[in-house]
């Protein structure tokens, strides 16, 4: 960029003319940013490809528009004015899982919803990241003792970042997203420690009392999720 500061031009015709002249004369300095100046005269930078990709992934995250329960209200507030998650390169909620990299799980997961959530997660392209928002995704939260409540989202899909709170404030969610970006940029991943409930074909289940009872209602090739509540934490 030239050292000379140009005054802001409001006259449209003048802008057009100047731009055209600059391009014709080959003096177009649109791409000569300050960043370029910082790199010096060489047009090359030297980095590892993986590192570069991780930096890119962390710097441009598409979130899945995914609302479950109370936390989704705070999540909407985080996307909207005042907190504006978009400022942190993570604010474009996508309605389709095919276009999303990050899924925020904002709420309690119950037995009827877990297979659907698993399916939505499976539909997201790799690499994908999961943010567990709120106590319910950690342990079931205030509903942990419920007969229908999954004791934490980690029993269904792997979670990268847990954000505690009931519900977490928008600031906490922003902090969690920033933390996740940092981890992605550093190429870190979270170990999966819980054996998850899987979607499997009914015919593949070990035949015991409950399977026998349901044998007439469910086809052998139907996908099912089996909950062993007794083994839950």
């Amino acid at each position: 960029m030239s050292s000379q500061q140009h005054p802001f031009v409001t006259d449209d015709s003048k802008v057009l003319t100047e731009t055209r002249d600059a391009r014709l004369a080959g003096q177009d300095d649109r791409f000569n940013s300050r960043l370029r100046e910082a790199f010096g005269s060489t047009p090359f930078i030297l980095t590892k490809f993986d590192k570069f990709m991780n930096w890119v992934r962390g710097s441009s995250m598409f979130m899945l528009q995914f609302g479950i329960a109370c936390c989704s209200i705070e999540m909407m507030h985080t996307y909207a004015v005042k907190h504006d998650l978009d400022r942190f390169a993570a604010g474009v909620p996508r309605a389709s899982p095919r276009q999303a990299d990050v899924i925020i799980i904002p709420g309690t997961i119950v037995s009827k919803f877990a297979p659907r959530m698993k399916r939505v997660y499976d539909q997201m392209p790799e690499p994908k990241f999961v943010i567990g928002m709120g106590s319910c995704t950690i342990s079931g939260g205030p509903f942990q003792e419920g007969y229908n409540v999954i004791k934490g989202a980690e029993e269904v899909i792997p979670i990268d970042i847990h954000i505690p709170g009931c519900p977490p404030r928008p600031e906490a969610l922003v902090y969690g997203v920033a933390k996740l970006q940092e981890r992605i940029a550093n190429g870190e991943s979270s170990p999966v420690v819980v054996k998850p409930y899987e979607l499997e074909q009914f015919g593949d289940l070990e035949r015991d009392e409950i399977v026998e009872q349901l044998a007439e209602d469910i086809d052998t090739d139907d996908l099912v999720m089996r909950y062993n509540w007794g083994d839950s934490p």
Binding site: S111, P115, R116, L205, I210, L214, Y227
Partner: peptide
């Protein structure tokens, strides 16, 4: 299986949910 707010419901019994 079972009716969870009835008296003899066993909350620890396994359940299967289909998709």
């Amino acid at each position: 299986q079972g009716h969870p707010l009835s008296m003899d419901y066993d909350q620890d019994q396994p359940q299967i949910v289909s998709l």
